[in-house]
């Protein structure tokens, strides 16, 4: 018996082979697997790195809350119009149930969060769309909240910054969704004519009616690396023209090359670059040397 203690234990005669599903399974919460490079990393570390993959720079989706925490000065955000919710204007079947389900899931009441805040001290009005709520689709509430945010920026004479993330118009509100494109654009025009600064940062995905309205109307139009941006869906285009599209079609990088964007900016550099832009647009400034 004692002898047994000094001998190596015999090799097990069987081994558990992980199933196909289990191989890809990563412990929920603690670890995150990058869908792009398939490498596994600590979720906490990833969050600290603004959810940008350490290995391949893939930008993991960010919800509105995380965006606020990462972009605005700590504690500076004050939300507006959080009491607005959809009234199901077309009495569309199953719509309210879908909304309630997403409210529970996301702890948001709609697909955009708006409010005032500061970026390295610069006062701004900000709107952040969240694609986890009904694919970030735009209905009456999203249109109204964004319009009110633009009006707020106009009233305060501060820049308006919008992070877009949307599949497009919200089907269940029909033509009212479509008209939100006009409503937000008309509001931006007034703000712009008053000299207001508009910055649009397109995140994954920005398509359809949102891309064909405020997302494209910035004085500066930026995008996050790899974001899908376009008017029509890839499948619809392929069906229409009957040819396969290039892999990078409608990515941020593709649009930059085609002249549709000012820049593609990594999330890790965004706050700093935005501060530069806000600095340059700051009224007044330090140029006494001109007078001498």
């Amino acid at each position: 018996m004692i002898k047994d203690l000094f001998t190596k234990p015999k090799k097990k005669k069987y081994a558990t082979i992980p199933s196909e599903a289990a191989k890809h399974d990563v412990p929920e919460g603690i670890m995150t697997k990058c869908p792009n490079c398939k490498k596994i990393m600590y979720s906490k570390e990833l969050t600290k790195n603004l959810k940008v993959c350490f290995h391949c720079q893939y930008h993991h989706p960010m919800n509105a809350n995380e965006r606020i925490a990462s972009f605005l000065d700590q504690g500076s955000f004050a939300e507006m119009d959080q009491q607005l919710t959809s009234s199901n204007p077309l009495q569309f079947p199953e719509y309210i149930e879908k909304l309630e389900k997403d409210q529970k899931k996301t702890k948001l009441n709609e697909a955009v969060v708006t409010g005032t805040g500061r970026v390295n001290g610069h006062e701004v009005v900000i709107a952040i769309m969240d694609s986890t709520f009904r694919m970030g689709s735009m209905g009456s509430v999203v249109g109204e909240k964004i319009t009110r945010a633009i009006e707020k920026a106009d009233e305060l004479s501060v820049p308006f910054i919008i992070f877009t993330a949307s599949g497009g118009a919200r089907m269940q509100e029909g033509v009212l969704s479509l008209m939100q494109m006009a409503k937000t654009s008309v509001a931006l025009k007034r703000f712009s004519d008053h000299g207001g600064l508009i910055v649009s940062i397109m995140t994954h995905p920005t398509t359809g009616g949102v891309s064909a309205s405020f997302a494209s109307l910035g004085d500066y139009n930026f995008a996050e690396p790899g974001a899908l941006i376009g008017f029509a869906g890839r499948r619809i285009i392929e069906q229409t023209i009957r040819e396969e599209l290039p892999e990078d079609f409608q990515t941020a990088e593709f649009l930059l090359e085609k002249g549709q964007l000012d820049a593609v900016i990594s999330r890790l550099d965004l706050k700093e670059k935005m501060t530069t832009i806000l600095d340059i647009h700051q009224p007044g400034g330090d140029f006494e040397w001109l007078e001498n």
Binding site: V186, S216, F231, A232, I236, T240, I241, Q250
Partner: peptide
Amino acid sequence: GAYPGKAAEERGQSEAIARNLFEMAG
């Protein structure tokens, strides 16, 4: 609707529509 084609996307279908909404307002 606006044409859903490759060339249309490359030349900025979204921007062209958005710009009209914006400019017509003024």
